[in-house]
Design a protein around this nucleic acid. Structure first.
Length: 800
RNA sequence: GCAGGAGUGGCGGAAUGGCAGACGCAUCAGACUCAAAAUCUGACGAGGGUGACCUUGUGUGGGUUCAAGUCCCAUCUCCUGCACCA
């Protein structure tokens, strides 16, 4: 038959939809499989080829699982709150609701055209009030459990988007949305205490199947370090100056202290600081620097000495100077450090620049040249003298600090609490009321959802106030606690709120009483396999793990970890090898490929391009190659013959079933398709194939090219849909040929090949190899030192 | 600087320590055609030889092994993430 994709693709998509074959069944007796892909942000541009690649892996696996008898949940939805929509709304004067609805309709249509087997009955939309009601509900639960707090603090702020950003949203000192330089601004910020879950998020990684680099990145992001907190004192003032250090063993080498320019101690003792003008100037300069600039000047240490203030080293009573310098961050540890120039390079650079004393306490380096961070014998260190490794001396020092009551062991995390409010319209309203009498009051659960007011003007204020602040009818309310007039919180939640729990809503998308019923959660969770992008590893994945751990602690879900397994897809690059971008004009529109070559070709090509997890450039010619392959497969129906010759294909078929089955599980989609191409070549070489063999082939190719395979299945007399039929099984005995060609090496160099009966005994194989004319002539007159045989692979004769 | 990963034909990429380059693309030659496209057949790492074949070859330099793209040591390059984190 001809491969008329225009005719068959629409036909099968309609049939699948009418028959509802991709609907998951709650509580079925079959084993369950929950395959999850990251739901898209429905942008106006429509789908990108990257979306297709991201969904194709679990699409293939889900289709295979259904044939293997699983009850499959493979859902899709839309993560639709966010700035691009809001900005577009401001630009065009169209309401974000309308833009979102249009974009969702477009994405839905496109996803269906590609033939994804999503369960369209469970679609979620994070901007739907029946959905965000539960986002707000979980937020209130966190509030109730003390995981939400408000504080005025220096935060990452994007001057272009006019919003506060979390640490995760401003990686590399750039705004995640518009890539402008992020500045530090003092703002009222709502935080979620993700740091309270830092240890659980770290430990949980032991129980899940994530790629090593993903785990490593999360470990780095959480950034746990162990060390000690030590209280220094200020000379002549009854004030403690607490520092955090990972090297308490070097305490005798402390020659100065450094505090962050924003440290509160400076203002507290401003009257004692003789050079306050210089200090103020330095602080102003630091505030002007972007995070990026601050990290660029790694080499040049700057700072100002606090004249009139001296610290006292608690272990030896020595008076030491105190500096402010921007190499110490207010946001990490206590915002103050003890400086040990002899054994820390940053302190060393600073000491050299400011002429501070350097005292060696660990032997082994040359401190006239650089700081020494290695192990060695302790010197100049009182009771630590003679210790010769970090581990012992740290333990001994902490013991002493605790005994003296001036310090204790402690841990620190690089991860910071999650800045959770945005001064924007298109997000979930934060369900909090500010009352003059009662302070911060949560909106009662029964009043949820707290709806976004329908307004015309979405512009944020110049100083970064939320657009909601201008809407009197929204802002003015009564206090839920005392009934007095009060004001609503006008900030909204960040983009990542709705996606932190969406996989739970798929389980029970229409439930009005709960985000998802526990019995259904128990049936479906955890997600068996979650595929997505590397860019979400230190954002969405870590946020959603946090929320899920919290819900687990409340007993509302059955597992602490939401995702049993995580995989990552690589980028699709433009044909020129660069990242696809509108400005470079190298973007490939997947719908163009569907129109020109068909959805099956697009899907097959994307899975065949290369290693699934690697970045691979697009190649238009190779797309045509996949089209050609599918056309050859279509041709099988014209080659069907029921004669005995087709028995010759038995071994190739069993081999292919084996390889395709295992390659799909290993996400080696490219070699699975290559194996099917090889089998296709075998069939063409023979020129005939049995009806049953064509049907097996259709089943194997079905996850990749489902429309064509359903058509072949129908034409060859198959009953029902392929998803209702079983995945082919192979017979191990039939995966081997009767004869095998093996290589024959002499002294490790390939000198020829011989054909042996598969599985032949060693001695027989040696005999066959030695009988080979060419081999015989090459070994003539030599002595055999060693004879090696690797079964069905190679023979190696070592001769002299 | 720290962590993780990768270097294989013209290209995308295959190879449980056992015949390097599967499969696809591109290219070249041939068939079909008035011609082109499509399709089919064949060749296709490099160097040499009329030829069967020979030599060489997986970033670079060493090593282990009967045998190394694969393991070990060193080194270079590239990608990804984090980064003055005390």
């Amino acid at each position: 038959m001809k491969h008329n994709f225009r005719k068959i693709e629409g036909k099968w998509q309609q049939k699948w939809e009418e028959a509802g074959i991709f609907h998951a069944v709650d509580g079925s007796d079959k084993p369950k499989f929950y395959g999850l892909v990251e739901f898209p942000y429905p942008s106006g541009a429509g789908m990108h080829v990257g979306h297709i690649k991201a969904y194709s892996s679990l699409e293939v696996i889900s289709r295979k699982r259904r044939m293997e008898g699983y009850n499959v949940l493979f859902p899709i939805g839309f993560d639709a709150f966010g700035l691009p929509t809001e900005n577009y709304a401001i630009k065009t004067g169209t309401h974000p609701r309308k833009i979102t609805d249009n974009n969702i309709a477009k994405f839905t249509d496109q996803l269906k055209k590609v033939g994804f087997s999503f369960d369209w009955d469970r679609v979620v939309d994070t901007t739907d009030e029946d959905y965000y009601k539960w986002t707000q509900w979980i937020f209130l639960k966190m509030f109730e459990h003390g995981l939400v707090f408000r504080s005025k603090a220096l935060v990452n702020y994007c001057p272009s988007c006019k919003v506060v950003l979390s640490n995760e949203d401003s990686q590399g000192g750039k705004c995640d949305i518009c890539h402008s330089d992020v500045i530090q601004k003092s703002k009222d910020v709502w935080y979620l205490k993700i740091t309270e879950y830092a240890d659980k998020l770290l430990a949980g990684l032991d129980d899940v199947d994530y790629p090593v680099n993903v785990k490593q990145q999360q470990v780095n992001w959480i950034g746990k370090s162990t060390g000690a907190f030590v209280n220094f004192t200020l000379d002549g003032i009854d004030e403690k100056l607490e520092i955090y250090t990972t090297r308490p063993d070097t305490l005798f080498g402390v020659t100065f202290m450094v505090i962050a320019p924003e440290h509160p101690l400076i203002d507290k003792y401003a009257d004692r600081i003789a050079n306050m003008d210089a200090v103020k100037n330095y602080r102003t300069e630091c505030a002007k620097k972007t995070e990026f600039e601050r990290t660029q000047l790694v080499k040049d240490k700057t700072g100002v000495k606090l004249e009139g203030i001296e610290a006292v080293n608690p272990v030896n009573g020595k008076k030491i100077p105190v500096f402010i310098a921007d190499y110490v961050m207010m946001g990490y540890g206590t915002g103050a450090i003890m400086a040990v120039p002899a054994h820390d390079q940053r302190d060393y650079d600073f000491a050299k620049a400011f002429g501070v004393e350097i005292i060696e306490v660990i032997k082994g380096g040359d401190i006239s040249v650089e700081a020494y961070a290695g192990d060695g014998e302790m010197v100049n260190s009182d009771f630590l003298n003679g210790y010769d490794n970090k581990k012992d001396s740290i333990a001994r020092m902490i013991e002493e600090l605790e005994k003296m009551g001036i310090g204790h062991a402690g841990v620190q995390f690089k991860m910071k609490d999650w800045a959770f409010n945005r001064q924007r319209y298109w997000g979930e309203p934060i369900p909090i009321v500010h009352c003059d009498h009662c302070g911060v009051v949560p909106v009662p659960y029964e009043e949820l959802p707290l709806r976004l007011p329908n307004v015309e003007n979405f512009e944020p204020g110049e100083e970064g106030e939320s657009p909601l602040a201008k809407i009197e009818s929204f802002v003015n309310c009564t206090c839920p606690k005392c009934g007095a007039p009060a004001r609503r919180e006008t900030d909204t939640m960040p983009q990542w709120a709705g996606s932190s729990w969406y996989f739970l809503r798929y389980i029970d998308p229409k439930n009005d009483d709960m985000f998802a019923a526990l019995d259904k959660v128990k049936y479906w969770m955890p997600v068996d396999w979650y595929n997505g992008g590397m860019e979400h590893v230190t954002r969405h994945v870590i946020y959603s793990r946090f929320w899920h751990h919290f819900l687990y602690d409340l007993g509302l879900v059955n597992t602490p970890e939401p995702y049993a397994k995580r995989s990552i897809q690589g980028l699709i690059l433009g044909p020129d090898g660069d990242k696809m971008s509108k400005s470079k004009g190298n973007v490939v529109d997947p719908l163009d490929i569907v129109d020109d070559f068909g959805a099956d070709t697009l899907r097959t090509y994307i899975m065949f391009m290369g290693d699934y997890s690697a970045a691979t450039p697009w190649n238009d010619n190779a797309v045509k190659g996949c089209k050609r392959f599918l056309e050859r497969v279509s041709g099988f129906t014209d080659m069907i013959s029921e004669d005995a010759e087709t028995k010759k294909l038995e071994t190739p078929f069993h081999k292919t079933i084996k390889k395709v089955s295992s390659d799909i599980e290993d996400m080696k989609f490219n070699t699975a398709i290559a194996a099917l191409m090889t089998l296709t070549n075998d069939i063409y070489n023979l020129g005939k194939v049995s009806n049953e063999q064509v049907q097996i082939f259709a089943k194997l190719l079905y996850p990749f090219a489902p429309h064509l395979c359903e058509e072949i299945w129908e034409v060859t007399g198959g009953t029902g849909f392929l998803s209702d039929n079983s995945w082919p099984v192979y017979d191990e005995a039939k995966t081997v040929d009767a004869q095998t060609e093996i290589g024959v090496q002499i002294n490790g160099k390939l000198r020829g090949t011989v054909v042996i009966p598969t599985g032949a005994e060693k001695e027989e194989v040696f005999a066959i190899a030695k009988a080979d004319e060419k081999i015989a002539s090459l070994v003539e007159g030599k002595t055999f030192v060693k004879e090696i045989y690797v079964p069905n692979r190679v023979v190696n004769f070592v001769v002299k």
